[in-house]
Write a protein that binds this DNA or RNA. Structure first.
Length: 625
DNA sequence: TTTAGGG
DNA sequence: CCCTAAA
């Protein structure tokens, strides 16, 4: 129920207040509040397309009254929803979103993925405050709610509609959203609306999230990708914390539609679009501590049975940490999957700098690592090479020591470079290689001086988590990590070209994901090119890797790409071209920004930002976000 | 330390 | 990506 202060309090089993967001993908939200069975239907929308059913007693919602509309008409829907709720409850409150921590105005959004291909991604979204004025009952919402097969929310936000054309869909929604967000609708449209093959989807997925997926469910893929792109619009800094092996994520993006009302068949797409462009980047800012402190997080074990294996795997992974959030999936999957490496390194580095609050450690892991011997014995079994390498601690990715002498320390007598290579190779051969990142770190020659410390210092220990765990515990408790790492491993090919001597090129080589690129672009649009550290702080706070320099470099590349490719104008769109190049819209954006900055760098802030390029004016309009 | 460029 | 020179 909702308390006066607007807090959501866990209700009894019977009075579970659940708001379900069918994940209508993009924010077509269906919020249902069930109480003692008494329900009142209100449609408030987070936008034109949001249907909200709320409990009579939960008067917390401002506009609820105005939202009453066609109760009759909604009855059926309500019933449906209730039905679903029941089902959901039965399944077990997978997710009881409760309690909004300190910030009463905050909303909690908890989502989970269902293994069932048909109702995967069932989100329970609780919004304590709906400031969103009701627009009108959207016909399409009926579609959603009435969704024939029980639990088939997917129909909604899906971009499956082949007919949805970027151009078409843009018009209605983009106008509304245009003001505040870069218009990526086109992008999304291209990517999402097309009928991509599974393979293509996989590639896109990879490009978007930076990891591979084995899921073969098209819908799922599309949805994920769509979400990824959608969320990528958020510049919000995502923070998440791992507590006691549980991942608590603080923040959920809510897409509120600001655009006008839409009706008819086009609704679906419209909603979709509006969401993408959803201006709400700011909405997604919830401090992590909030979540943590909130009672909300609760262990909910979810057991599913159906579903494809792949899907299950994917989801199981997510389930592990419980409460996978969309955010989690996209960002975490990137950060987390590569797990330790970035995080750890950053932590070690950040501890002193304060830049980033030290992320939490995964306890279990640490424990393990602490007891592990400094020698990785498992290596030999991996490749059969029989190579045994002393366990080395990771080092801060800071200034390399010019001290090459250390290289000579290696027992085998060969330089670290060599040893490293061997090890790496060994690991690579095996399917279950530890995070390549880690390996890289481990193998870093520059850290040689520290690598042979027999004893682990507390800090080093942390670093060990990475390798040790990945190496030793592969396939064990770390369901999530494991799956992720394995998944990631495949795409995380280290093109390590050890330059004969001691320098290995491409230490990290973390492929830039679409999401990141978009963030970068947005960041640049906000802060302006050149202020990389700013951008880094704002948009990449959660990406411990990606230094400001990286951003700069990437931008440079983007620029180059945009200039080189825009003219030809050909179809280097997301579709086709396995490489999954940067979507044209983004490149356009890049170009615009480049032009903008070229013309009005320091001075004249806004005067002549518009229509500079003379090209697509529509694209140009948003000088800032 | 952060930027800007070169490699 | 890495490295370095400049601000």
């Amino acid at each position: 129920m909702v308390e006066g202060d607007g807090r959501l309090v866990p209700a009894t089993d019977d009075e579970v207040m659940e708001v379900e967001d069918f994940l209508i993908d993009d924010k077509t939200e269906v919020n249902v509040t069930t109480d003692t069975g008494k329900t009142e239907e209100c449609i408030s929308s987070g936008g034109p397309s949001c249907l909200k059913l709320q409990l009579e007693s939960s008067e917390g919602l401002p506009d609820s009254e105005n939202k009453k509309v066609d109760a009759e008409q909604l009855t059926s829907r309500l019933e449906y929803i209730e039905e679903m709720l029941q089902k959901v409850k039965q399944e077990e409150r997978l997710r009881l979103a409760c309690g909004s921590p300190d910030d009463s105005s905050a909303f909690m959004n908890v989502d989970r993925q269902c293994s069932d291909p048909h109702d995967k991604l069932l989100f329970i979204d609780v919004k304590l405050q709906s400031e969103i004025p009701l627009q009108e009952i959207v016909p399409s919402s009926a579609l959603i709610l009435n969704g024939n097969h029980n639990n088939e929310p997917r129909s909604i936000g899906e971009c499956s509609k082949p007919a949805d054309e970027p151009g078409e869909s843009r018009s209605p929604a983009s106008g509304a959203c245009a003001s505040s967000k870069p218009d990526f609708s086109k992008l999304k449209g291209e990517i999402c609306l097309d009928n991509l093959s599974i393979r293509e989807l996989h590639e896109l997925f990879k490009a978007t999230f930076g990891r591979e997926t084995t899921v073969k469910d098209k819908l799922w893929l599309k949805r994920r990708i769509a979400m990824g792109l959608t969320n990528s619009c958020d510049v919000a800094t995502t923070t998440f914390t791992i507590k006691e092996n549980k991942l608590v994520k603080g923040m959920e993006e809510s897409c509120k539609n600001a655009d006008g009302t839409l009706t008819g068949p086009s609704m679906v797409e419209a909603m979709d679009i509006s969401c993408k462009n959803s201006p709400t980047s700011h909405c997604s800012q919830i401090e992590d501590h909030q979540i943590v402190s909130g009672k909300s997080v609760r262990n909910n074990r979810v057991e599913f049975d159906g579903g494809s294996d792949d899907l299950q795997t994917e989801q199981r992974a997510a389930k592990r940490v419980r409460k996978p959030t969309r955010r989690y999936i996209e960002e975490l999957s990137e950060v987390e999957s590569r797990d330790c490496s970035p995080k750890v390194s950053s932590s070690a580095k950040n501890i002193g700098s304060e830049q980033t609050s030290p992320k939490s450690w995964v306890k279990p892991i640490r424990k393990v690592s602490s007891n592990e011997r400094p020698v990785v014995t498992r290596l030999d079994s991996l490749g059969g090479s029989g190579v045994q390498v002393p366990y080395v601690s990771r080092v801060r990715r800071s200034r390399p020591r010019k001290n090459i002498m250390a290289l000579m320390f290696h027992p085998s007598g060969m330089g670290m470079g060599m040893a490293a290579k061997v090890v790496k190779k060994t690991l690579m051969v095996h399917g279950s290689q530890p995070d390549s990142e880690c390996l890289d770190q481990v193998l870093k020659p520059r850290s040689a001086s520290e690598q042979f410390q027999p004893l682990l210092t507390p800090e080093d220990e942390k670093d060990h988590q990475c390798s040790v765990i990945d190496t030793i515990h592969l396939g064990k408790n770390l369901g999530l990590k494991q799956s992720d790492s394995s998944e990631e491993a495949s795409d995380d090919n280290l093109a390590t070209v050890p330059t004969a001597k001691g320098g290995m090129r491409r230490k990290h080589h973390r492929a830039w994901t679409l999401v990141e690129v978009m963030k970068l672009v947005e960041g640049v649009s906000k802060c302006g090119a050149g202020r990389w550290s700013e951008i880094k702080r704002l948009a990449f706070a959660s990406y411990s890797y990606r230094t400001s320099v990286d951003l700069k470099d990437k931008w440079r590349n983007l620029l180059k790409a945009s200039l080189a490719q825009t003219p030809p104008d050909d179809g280097i769109n997301s579709r086709k071209h396995a490489s999954v190049p940067i979507p044209a819209p983004i490149l356009l954006r890049v170009r615009e920004l480049a032009e903008m900055h070229a013309q009005a760098p320091p001075k004249l802030g806004s005067s002549r930002l518009a229509g500079v390029g003379g090209r697509s004016v529509q694209e140009t309009r948003s000088g800032y976000l």
